[in-house]
């Protein structure tokens, strides 16, 4: 069990989200960066859907009420345990009374903290995710605050005492300043002016300060919607890129509404949503157009790479077990 000593607003308990209630107007919620969440869980031997703590703002401090294992993955945030520096991806043991401190985020925008078996909160409508707008799920349907206690759902599994880390996919391609997002053209793509379509796929867009779990507002070449008449509201999903009147795109994310009336130019593919979650205000995004077949292949490749990591971790546990 860990106690929250200090945490800025915004940290929530999340799993992979609450699917199946879209038609009733209830969004998915869930983690913004499913990759870091999944890896933090994998390091502890948890299922990928075990709940983690998503931390978008630091500094934060936690005290271990009793000795136990924990894992971190996501943004580099100068984490220390009892004053000793930890890498941005980490699984290890903490002794009773030790303080885990997260410092300023240097790169990336969200850190995930995992506990053995997941963070023990009740499942509501099939998920442990915090539904912030509706105020349920997660820890009492709210963001965490000092004094909160987070319980591990399982006893600590034996971990190599010294701890271990994992190589994560890079947020950006080597030597590239922009974060590339693969995307499919969406329903109204063809109704944007040809020059706007060209600009959307070839120029970069900066993440603005108006960016949160609901969506990211971007700043760049304005996009002109060329069709006349008003659109009716349509269902939208995390990853959809809408373009409101001002011509600056918005990417809808984990806490997106289920319906929206703005024209949609594109949809970022699911395997790349984690990259948006780790983009900071001021970071530049570039959209690369892919086909539906390429999107399916990217999803398959990501699953395959995660299965490979899981197998490598299992082999590591077996080696370590042989030496103890």
């Amino acid at each position: 069990m860990i106690e929250v000593l200090f945490i800025p607003p915004g940290a929530t308990v999340q799993d992979l989200g609450r699917d199946g209630y879209w038609s009733q107007g209830l969004g998915r919620a869930g983690v913004m960066d499913a990759l870091s969440h999944g890896i933090a869980n994998m390091l502890l031997g948890n299922g990928e859907d075990a709940a983690t703590l998503e931390i978008p703002l630091t500094p934060a401090r936690f005290r271990f009420r009793q000795a136990g294992a924990f894992a971190l993955a996501g943004a580099a945030c100068g984490a220390t345990l009892a004053g000793r520096p930890l890498p941005r991806v980490w699984a290890g043991m903490a002794d009773e009374g030790e303080v885990l401190e997260l410092g300023p985020m240097a790169s990336g925008a969200r850190t995930y903290l995992a506990l053995p078996g997941g963070i023990d909160v009740p499942a509501v409508l099939g998920s442990r995710s915090t539904q912030l707008r509706e105020g349920f799920g997660g820890l009492e349907g709210r963001v965490l605050a000092a004094g909160d206690l987070l319980r591990a759902a399982a006893d600590t599994a034996p971990l190599p005492l010294a701890g271990f880390s994992l190589t994560m996919p890079a947020l950006r391609a080597p030597g590239v300043a922009e974060i590339e997002l693969r995307a499919l053209p969406a329903a109204e793509h063809g109704d944007f002016a040809p020059a706007s379509r060209e600009a959307f796929w070839t120029t970069s867009y900066a993440v603005s300060q108006q960016s949160n779990r609901q969506g990211y507002r971007l700043e760049g070449e304005p996009l002109a919607y060329a069709a006349s008449g008003e659109l009716r509201s349509h269902g939208i999903a995390p990853g959809i890129v809408q373009v409101p009147g001002g011509g600056q795109p918005i990417i809808q994310l984990a806490d997106s509404a289920t319906m929206g009336g703005y024209p949609k130019i594109a949809a970022v593919i699911e395997p790349d949503l984690w990259r948006i979650a780790q983009a900071r205000p001021g970071d530049r995004l570039r959209f690369r157009r892919v086909t539906l077949a390429e999107a399916a292949e990217a999803a398959r490749a990501q699953q395959e790479s995660l299965a490979g990591l899981r197998a490598e971790l299992e082999a590591f546990r077996v080696r370590q077990g042989g030496w103890q």
Binding site: G92, P160, A162, G163, F164, S165, L166, T167, G308, L309, E312, L313, A315, F316, Q320
Partner: peptide, 8 residues
């Protein structure tokens, strides 16, 4: 490190 796993 062996593959992606990095022992501390």
């Amino acid at each position: 490190a062996q593959g992606a796993v990095r022992a501390a």
